[in-house]
């Protein structure tokens, strides 16, 4: 089933297009951060821009345009938004824990800041002494 976009009112076209541009632009900024940032623990934050507001913007834009074009509310696109919002923290948490495990098993504790590192060494020396 195809839809004729000339039936869309102008305000709905402008609003939906603004949301589409917002979503695509935020996804682009997120992947740009994926390339530019230095360590993995910084990089893991960057694509969440695309999975939160990037996906929400694209979904809301297509919902507005389809609803205005067909004349009835088209709400099933929101399933994508809900699904991505629910699953992204799970995947990134598992990936972050796996990376932390790999880093610790190799002996480089890069994710910790300096104060935490001193605290960790102190704890280790106390544990060794007792």
């Amino acid at each position: 089933m195809t839809i004729d976009f000339s039936a869309v009112p102008l305000w709905a076209a402008i609003l939906g297009s603004a949301f589409l541009l917002l979503g695509a632009g935020l996804s682009l900024i997120g992947t740009f951060g994926l390339v530019r940032l230095q360590t993995f623990y910084e990089r893991i934050h960057a694509p969440t821009l695309g999975t939160s507001w990037g996906t929400a913007g694209m979904v809301m834009g297509s919902m507005i345009i389809f609803s205005a074009a067909t004349g009835r509310p088209v709400l099933h696109h929101i399933l994508i938004g809900i699904f991505v919002t629910v699953t992204t923290p799970i995947t990134l948490m598992m990936l972050g824990r796996a990376t932390l495990y790999r880093d610790r098993s190799e002996g480089n504790s890069s994710p910790l800041v300096k104060g935490d590192q001193a605290l960790l060494q102190e704890q280790n020396s106390e544990g060794g002494a007792s």
Partner: peptide, 18 residues
Amino acid sequence: RILALDALYVCGMLQLLA
């Protein structure tokens, strides 16, 4: 690489939506 693959999946999903 896994993180980039995940981001690539999301971008492909949005591409198909557009």
